[in-house]
Amino acid sequence: MLTPDDLTTFIQGLLSSIDAGFLLDRVAPALNRGLLVTIKLVIPSIILGVLLGIALGAARAFGQRPLRRAGDVYAYIFRGVPLIVQLFIIYNALPKLGLALDGFAAAVLGFIMCSGAYHSEYIRGALLSVRQGQIRAAQALGFSRSGLLLHVVLPQALRRALPACGNEFIYLIKYTSLAYMTTCVDLTSEARNLAAYTFRFPEVFMVCGLYYLALTSLAGLGLRWLEKKAHIPGFGRSK
């Protein structure tokens, strides 16, 4: 049982562990280094992941049957297999088949492929929600298939998919912490190494958590801004 005494001990421990010197001299440099790597992992993964998701989503919603099937199978596999296993396969199994990637590239590739599968699901749903009548109107004006997808359907679908895709961005930031599977030394890996070396787990991991919170808050703000920027009367919430 947890007693009030335990709680007091915990809080005292927490307070006594705040050691400005340690935090500034050891924790901050290591975690900043890791943060930089995490950011380098996140940015290409988000951008290429969402592009892959758009292509896949469009193929799954509007492609010819074989393309649609291929997209469905892709999403089925990459949503169905744990990301950590996917990273193992990319980093450890593919070299045996003749495709060797360094840790960073392997991690980014894994994140792109996985988040692309998730994005494709959100985008597919949003694409299918665009009213059929508008597609007919675009066809009647002489739009080609790709033209109407690009200029009529996607601009509306992406606005509808934005909240869900934003959720996926936040997830992605957090699951880059799996990059250690490919020996890529990101924020979490730096924290683990430092904590293991100094044995000061509480402060190192709490600061590490704060770093992630800062990243996801920033992403959240960015998404809020994007949603506002992309807002059009008649879409989503009315202001």
Partner: peptide, 28 residues
């Protein structure tokens, strides 16, 4: 080409919801 020369007006308008009136007219 044919469709460009044969205009169509629909019962339920089918304007493009994400475009202003002006852009609805100019997009094509």
């Amino acid at each position: 080409r044919f469709r460009q020369q044969v205009g169509m007006i629909f019962q339920d308008f089918n304007l493009f919801d994400h475009l202003t009136a002006l852009d609805n007219v100019s997009v094509a």
